[in-house]
Design a protein around this nucleic acid. Sequence first.
RNA 1: GGACGGCUAGCUCAACGGUAGAGCAUCGCAUUUACACUGCGGAGGUUAUAGGUUCGAAUCCUUUGCCGUCCACCA
Length: 714
Amino acid sequence: MDKQYQAKNIEEKIYQFWKKGGFFNPDNLSESKKGSFSIATPPPNVTGVLHMGHALNFTIQDILIRWKRMQGFKTLLLPGTDHAGIATQNVVEKKLKKEGKTRFDLGRDEFIKKVWEWKKEYGSMILKQIESLGTSCDWSRTRFTMDEGYTEAVQQSFLHYYDKGLVYRGKRAVNWCPRCQTSLSDLELEYKEEKGKLWFIKYKLKDEDGYIEVATTRPETMLGDMAVAVNPKDKRYKKLIGKTIILPIVNREIPIVADDFVDLEFGTGAVKVTPAHDMGDYQISLRHKLEVMQIIDENGRMDNVSSAYQGLKAKVAREKVVAELEKLDVLEKVIDYTHQIPKCYRCNTTIEIIPSWQWFVKMDKLAKLSTDAVKKKEIVFTAKRWEKGYFTWLKNIQDWCISRQIWWGHRLPVWFCQTNKEAHFVSIETPKECSICKKCQPKQSEDVFDTWFSAALWPFATLGWPKKTKDLEQFYPTDIICTARDIINFWVVRMIFSSLELLKEVPFKKIIIHATIMTKDGRRMSKSLGTGINPMNLIERYGSDATRFGLSWQITELQDIRFGEENMLAGKKFCNKIWNASKFVMQQLGDEKFDIIIKPSPITKEDKKILNELEKTIKKIDTNLAKLSFGTAIQEIYHFFWHQFCDLYIEEAKNQIKEPKSAKEAENTRKILIYVLATSLKILHPFMPFITEEIYQSLPLKEKKALIVEKWPE
RNA sequence: GGACGGCUAGCUCAACGGUAGAGCAUCGCAUUUACACUGCGGAGGUUAUAGGUUCGAAUCCUUUGCCGUCCACCA
């Protein structure tokens, strides 16, 4: 054995040993009474590079899976990747931009071909990185959200919702990204603080002198105002409700309406209502039956307005409108105002609200299913604090806009009649004839699904749904979903209601929301801030086991981890300690082969103590792993191995072998040494799989399997 | 604006009602030993703040402050 542990060579070799042995595939594991234990791993985007969050996530899942596997469960850790609609499309668009092209230059088919090429090249990169963490995924079951079978699942689920009346098509004000040229759901926005202004404008009354003053951050939208709203409780405006005003510049007559939505405290307490371009105003317009007049188009330019403004970018139009208002002497004042601006979460472009035809999933029934499942404890958050946010989100939920106007994704299986253009029908097969007019060649919708619509099917679509497969029978519902908190609403909620609606059972029993890894000073790790740490770099420098050790060490009940690299170094030292202690033990053994199935009996009081401590440690590991206290668990083993076994027992063993006080003492000490070592390797294995397997394979044992499938000590 | 979490040794965290612990860092000593990626020993804390409950509080309740994350259609 080398004097020092060399992670690099060994890790690669051992991973191949496991792969060749087929240990990751549950089909190769022997049947047992314990049943199955399965986890569908969160599929990373095909655009992605492994970050610390992934490393932590996969470490946790792999520790659990390895522990359960050794306990005799049929374990499945199912890997895969997500096509990540807008994200991936944007990456490829960026690449095209360097060549001076847009996706529209290529056309839909050509562009999608490019994205597939991209996927082929980079899609599996992240999976390779997950491998290098030692993750024991069954790679034979790897899935991609745009696999043939998976696509069928997506279409079938839509068909189901359609048949049950749970999806509908409607023209609604939606979030629109003028750069991506697509609608976005409420979740796909990120609000960023920006310095702006608040303009106070006087709207003159029609039938009497006087005016009502409104405050706005977007004066250009006044061209599409359909009302002014005040709070019905507002004494200042009570007598104005129902009166008519003349909208400046356009000189259109609009009413003053009363609506509870209006905040008395803010601005002047009177709100201009632009139904087409503001979510709140849109809601008001529904309540007061106001017309929705679109004045900003899909490119963020003024449309359907007088020639002075037609075609101008909204921001340019703003200045012109303000100048005009000033000229008309209706601009009361302007103040500086900092507010939150919605941005596209994928390209950071400012979002416009625009009315457009989209598909929506009705959320009331589905939200109730999800809420009830957690209330009834059919699904539990292992940290209760996440329940509250979950319930609140579901309580305030709006219908989910699932159609996107991008190209990369699953096409909606919706067909439009060419005779009657508004009429449509759903068909998964390409229809032979139009089921509406029976004579035209129907055209398929250009839209694709929100990427989260397909991700919502992950735990069961990966197991073969909608087919009734053996995998579904054996591994569904899965046991655990393990993910980050920022993805609860995007993904966890949607998997829950999708499964409850489509399969009538929960998708998983437990939700582990793991900590977010922060920088040492408690800030978010982000690529753009340059505060990110690449886990591949840690693996390179310390080895995979040490990285896993360092991560596990820091897993506590807290919702954040302040990342400390010292723990990886500690892990590396610990690897070396394990390595050298094993080397020493083996040097003491000679050529004999040992049996570790029967626990050796103690002779000296040191023998007794170490065997006792070992037993206590095993118990602690089990309790702590069951509680998901990974940090405590690894610290217990660390303490036992280093300070009980190495510092005390091995030191004493030297004497017991050299100068035995009884005939059997030396021989018995050898038995205890290898017994304690081998057992330690077993309980260390879920945390540090490579080094433990490597050493285990070189132990002189009578009976020996691969450590990955050895029996967990009890 | 709301929710969640944190504030304990220089750093990262444990202790969750009974004399405050660990790892790393630090300081002393030891030894060429399986391992210097070592061993032994030491120093280091009015547990953010103010109040309350209790025989007893880092721990339970309340106040204030600071740090962080998430959620939210205040024009």
